[in-house]
Measured scan of single mutants.
Amino acid sequence: MTEYKLVVVGAGGVGKSALTIQLIQNHFVDEYDPTIEDSYRKQVVIDGETCLLDILDTAGQEEYSAMRDQYMRTGEGFLCVFAINNTKSFEDIHHYREQIKRVKDSEDVPMVLVGNKCDLPSRTVDTKQAQDLARSYGIPFIETSAKTRQGVDDAFYTLVREIRKHKEKMSKDGKKKKKKSKTKCVIM
């Protein structure tokens, strides 16, 4: 069974824990209790493949930012979460993405942009803004509501699919490099 290491990042209060708990335990946590770091595991079937999701729910508070490099190193894919009623959390996505790329030393890291709290009427981040940002990053965008469960499975499952595509691409690139290195030079 394939294991996928997913990391949920975003500013404090955007609903990272609520999304994760909704996926794992099928219930909505409405009281806000700032996370330092929590880890969850769940076995699911995605596109006919049974897999184990190892999900790291991270601290959004700035005082825990020193811990970010460590979990970013171990993560295979990242859910970059903002709240649709919090423009600052949307603007912060850029910083999370840049930090992930720096730590992973790669421009090509599996990510999904997630606009959470889409059940709320007080939207300050337009869907088109988020779609445009995701398009500019070359990553999928999904709106979710941890409260109603809308888009929750889709967000995590899409990230797994992005990781699969990335692994497939990397193995193809690896095979191309191996083929090239088999060419021999004969000096007579």
Score class of each variant (00 low, 15 high):
residue 136 S to T: 14
residue 136 S to Y: 04
residue 40 Y to L: 11
residue 104 K to F: 05
residue 127 T to I: 12
residue 128 K to N: 13
residue 164 R to F: 04
residue 73 R to G: 12
residue 89 S to T: 02
residue 182 K to P: 14
residue 187 I to E: 15
residue 165 K to T: 02
residue 109 V to L: 03
residue 172 K to T: 06
residue 115 G to D: 01
residue 150 Q to D: 14
residue 89 S to D: 03
residue 173 D to M: 11
residue 60 G to N: 12
residue 32 Y to T: 11
residue 17 S to K: 01
residue 154 D to K: 12
residue 122 S to Y: 09
residue 101 K to R: 12
residue 47 D to E: 06
residue 169 K to V: 13
residue 69 D to P: 06
residue 32 Y to L: 09
residue 125 V to I: 11
residue 83 A to E: 15
residue 97 R to K: 05
residue 76 E to N: 08
residue 16 K to T: 14
residue 158 T to K: 04
residue 82 F to V: 09
residue 30 D to H: 04
residue 133 L to H: 02
residue 159 L to D: 00
residue 14 V to E: 04
residue 64 Y to F: 10
residue 144 T to I: 08
residue 169 K to Y: 02
residue 13 G to Q: 07
residue 92 D to C: 04
residue 150 Q to K: 15
residue 49 E to P: 03
residue 31 E to A: 08
residue 152 V to K: 02
residue 155 A to E: 01
residue 152 V to R: 03
residue 181 S to P: 04
residue 25 Q to H: 11
residue 164 R to C: 04
residue 136 S to C: 09
residue 188 M to W: 12
residue 112 V to E: 00
residue 187 I to M: 15
residue 138 G to D: 11
residue 28 F to A: 09
residue 8 V to E: 00
residue 72 M to C: 08
residue 50 T to H: 08
residue 61 Q to H: 08
residue 129 Q to D: 05
residue 142 I to D: 01
residue 76 E to D: 15
residue 18 A to N: 07
residue 80 C to F: 15
residue 176 K to A: 11
residue 18 A to S: 08
residue 103 V to G: 05
residue 68 R to T: 11
residue 129 Q to Y: 05
residue 2 T to I: 05
residue 181 S to E: 15
residue 22 Q to F: 02
residue 116 N to G: 07
residue 124 T to K: 10
residue 94 H to T: 15
residue 138 G to V: 02
residue 4 Y to T: 11
residue 104 K to Y: 13
residue 139 I to P: 02
residue 176 K to W: 09
residue 55 I to R: 04
residue 158 T to Q: 12
residue 6 L to N: 00
residue 161 R to E: 10
residue 171 S to I: 13
residue 77 G to F: 08
residue 170 M to A: 02
residue 70 Q to L: 05
residue 36 I to N: 13
residue 153 D to T: 14
residue 23 L to W: 11
residue 104 K to M: 10
residue 21 I to A: 15
residue 130 A to V: 14
residue 82 F to N: 01
residue 4 Y to K: 05
residue 115 G to W: 04
residue 156 F to W: 07
residue 131 Q to M: 09
residue 8 V to D: 00
residue 58 T to M: 05
residue 112 V to S: 01
residue 145 S to K: 13
residue 149 R to K: 14
residue 23 L to E: 13
residue 48 G to I: 02
residue 47 D to T: 03
residue 132 D to G: 07
residue 128 K to R: 11
residue 182 K to M: 13
residue 115 G to K: 02
residue 34 P to D: 12
residue 138 G to Y: 01
residue 134 A to S: 04
residue 72 M to S: 06
residue 30 D to G: 09
residue 98 E to P: 00
residue 15 G to T: 00
residue 8 V to N: 00
residue 99 Q to G: 04
residue 136 S to H: 06
residue 40 Y to K: 11
residue 140 P to F: 08
residue 73 R to I: 04
residue 135 R to N: 12
residue 131 Q to V: 07
residue 64 Y to G: 15
residue 95 H to K: 15
residue 139 I to T: 04
residue 172 K to Q: 14
residue 158 T to R: 07
residue 118 C to I: 08
residue 116 N to K: 00
residue 43 Q to D: 09
